[in-house]
Design a protein around this nucleic acid. Structure first.
Length: 605
RNA sequence: GCACCUAUGGUGAAAUGGAUAUCACAACGGUCUUCGGAACCGUUAUUCUAGGUUCGAAUCCUGGUAGGUGCACCA
């Protein structure tokens, strides 16, 4: 349609003897009252031609009208000189018919033949899976689905930090635990909790000693105490890397396995499934090799030695926008690769297993500057990977203080947040007639929807204030509201089936279509439904699932207005088949849209 | 200290450089439920500040203010 309008405009300009600019834009007006399509061509031309934009627009419209563009009913000049196009009721109606007949409505082929890789979540064994991981998972999963929806081949990757100082601190912290090591048949939660506490104790103790030792007024003995502790942790770290201590290995393997098992349970609830896992422990060797091979005076000389460590002097480079980078350490003076060093190995390994056309890493925005350095290095070391790698960041999920399950006042785990949401959902359903098993399934779906929607409703990169009260109330702008709308619409379809009303757009329309009207004032519901594929495509190209979330919100609101203003399933109503058709189209679109957000539609709720 | 990010009704957000800045929550008033009220309808209220670019600025540029984040052997 847009192409047809553009060529019509070109023809109109030629007949007015005006040179057409290279780019003529056809846009969707923000307000539907301004038509189905709009162009600012007159405003753009007005300067060079020194004409009044409204007069020019009027002239263009005159010649456009002579062309009788198919599917267009009305062309108007509005505001400062916009030209608005209104589609015929028949065209809109045809759009609804298409939704009904096309199971894949909303999908597109714009990325067919392309390979996308998404790396997200990236939790660390031995540490809690916290709400930041929940966010990254939500965003990464939605981006993956948008990729699939637009035809790309998509692989989901998860990179987990199973070595490094946090693990060393967890194992070192075991000595301060007053609880016994979990027995084999202890619950998974208890097992993971045990290591989580060990890490907390280890990290706390280490941090405390470090603070004391580094304070200006610290005594010699305090300094010595920290020094000896530092040696212990470093030795533990080395043992983990080189697996030289059988006892450490045994404990380490158990802790790692338990953590990973627990992550899998969460992924199941979150409805996400990774194609492949990578571990930091596997990236040490390739990372070291790459860095060593390019440390001056060898290779590309990107790295150099400094104070016994190997660094990348970021100050000497700029990012894609010409902004200077910062220096980072890639190999420590203990000859161990830092996280940065391993990341470089990972960049290469990831591409080796899957030659993607676009590779996106999702992380918190506190890593923005870090990723600029990594992306720059990737470009310099592996140009063919560098141009395909991108970083998408998210802000923090902030919780109101003193609420939710942060019992200790420390990090909120993903599990506790999920549990709270599920509990709320169950509470809400207590009067529903459902088996308790069904209720649990639905409570999972609703709880997940509440969290995911809260994350995806706003553009990523900024912090999200996750207001417990509001999100738990499930009102208005929320995932459960969308689910509820879908569920209610589905139950309407069931009812229609029982009564025997078939969805159809082909009813006796004669007077209505001649008057250019559809059922609903302005045909707003219909027009929104038809736009779904454009919304999905835009969300994909901008890596912005919130376009889908906002669209669904508007759509559901419009549907609910429709629902409450008219009787839909009614035997004697000649419009009933069309009304049911709208409900059916709505169900198809909202189900697809929620899928893009990673949200399931419950059977009942 | 240097760098980056952010600033929109009371609150949380949206808006390819476009039209009267949109939505939800809260507040206030209504629908009174027989297709599922986790719903619907209405009212009040918003672009941090000073300049600049532009036919047109919440959006782009410059200064200021406020907040957040990151900067060597952590991940």
């Amino acid at each position: 349609m847009q192409e047809a309008l553009i060529s019509s405009i070109k023809i109109a300009l030629i007949s007015l003897k005006i040179e057409a600019p290279e780019k003529i834009t056809i846009e969707r007006p923000t307000d539907m009252l301004h038509g189905d399509f709009s162009t600012n061509i007159s405003l753009v031309l007005t300067k060079q031609l020194k004409l009044n934009p409204v007069n020019l627009a009027l002239q263009i419209v005159e010649t456009l009208k002579l062309q009788n563009i198919a599917g267009i009913e009305k062309i108007e000049v509005a505001g400062p000189g916009f030209i608005n196009f209104y589609q015929t009721a028949n065209t809109i109606k045809g759009g609804i018919a298409e939704i009904l007949s096309n199971e894949n409505f909303g999908k597109s082929i714009r990325n067919v033949g392309k390979k996308f890789a998404f790396e997200y979540t990236d939790p660390n064994p031995f540490k809690q899976f916290h709400i930041g991981h929940l966010m990254a998972n939500t965003i990464g999963e939605s981006l993956s689905r948008l990729g699939e929806y637009t035809g790309a081949e998509v692989k989901r990757f998860c990179y987990q930090g199973d070595v490094g100082r946090h693990v060393a601190l967890a194992l070192w912290g075991l000595r301060f635990m007053d609880k016994p090591f979990p027995v084999e048949d202890a619950s998974l939660g208890d097992k993971v909790e045990f290591f989580g506490q060990a890490y907390a104790k280890g990290a706390q103790r280490f941090g405390k000693l470090e603070t004391i030792a580094k304070a200006p007024e610290s005594s010699e003995s305090e300094k010595e105490e920290f020094a000896s502790v530092e040696v212990e942790v470093r030795e533990m770290n080395k043992k983990i890397y080189d697996r030289s201590d059988a006892e450490v290995n045994e404990i380490y393997d158990k802790g790692r396995e338990w953590s990973l098992e627990q992550f899998e349970e969460l992924y199941k609830i979150l409805d996400t499934k990774f194609d492949r896992y990578f571990f930091e422990s596997q990236m040490s060797t390739p990372g070291l090799e790459i860095v060593r091979a390019n440390t001056a005076p060898k290779g590309l000389k990107l790295f150099r030695e400094s104070d016994g460590a190997v660094i990348f002097p970021g100050e000497e480079y700029t990012d894609r926008n010409g902004i200077p980078l910062h220096t980072r350490v890639f190999i420590t003076r203990d000859s161990l690769p830092t996280y940065d060093g391993k990341e470089i190995g990972f960049a290469k390994e990831k591409y080796a297993v899957y030659q993607y056309d676009k590779g996106i890493t999702v992380s918190g925005n506190e890593q923005n500057d870090y990723f600029k350095v990594i992306l720059k290095l990737t470009e310099l070391l592996f140009p063919e990977i560098g141009i395909k790698a991108e970083h998408v960041s998210h802000g923090m999920l902030r919780l109101p203080t003193g609420k939710m399950s942060s019992r200790t006042g420390e990090v909120v785990t993903g599990e506790s947040l999920l549990n709270d949401m599920r509990q709320m959902a169950l509470e809400r359903m207590k009067d529903r007639e459902m088996s308790s098993d069904d209720k649990k399934v639905v409570a999972d779906q609703v709880g997940v929807a509440a969290i995911k929607y809260a994350v995806l409703r706003q553009s990523s990169g900024k912090d999200i204030i996750f207001d417990a009260e509001k999100s738990l109330s499930f009102e208005g702008d929320s995932g459960p509201y969308l689910q509820y709308s879908a569920v209610r619409a589905k139950s309407l379809l069931e009812k229609a089936g029982v009564v025997g009303i078939q969805a159809s757009t082909e009813i006796d329309w004669t007077p209505e279509l001649e008057a250019g009207t559809l059922l609903w004032p302005g045909g707003k519901l219909e027009r929104l439904l038809v736009r779904f594929p454009e919304v999905a495509a835009r969300a994909e190209s901008e890596h912005s699932p919130h376009h889908v979330a906002n669209y669904l919100m508007e759509l559901a609101g419009e549907f609910n207005s429709f629902y409450s203003s008219t009787q839909i399933v009614s035997k004697d109503d000649k419009f009933a088949p069309y009304k049911v058709a709208l409900v059916s189209a709505f169900v198809r679109v909202i189900t697809g849209g929620l899928w893009l957000l990673g949200i399931q539609v419950p059977k009942k709720m």
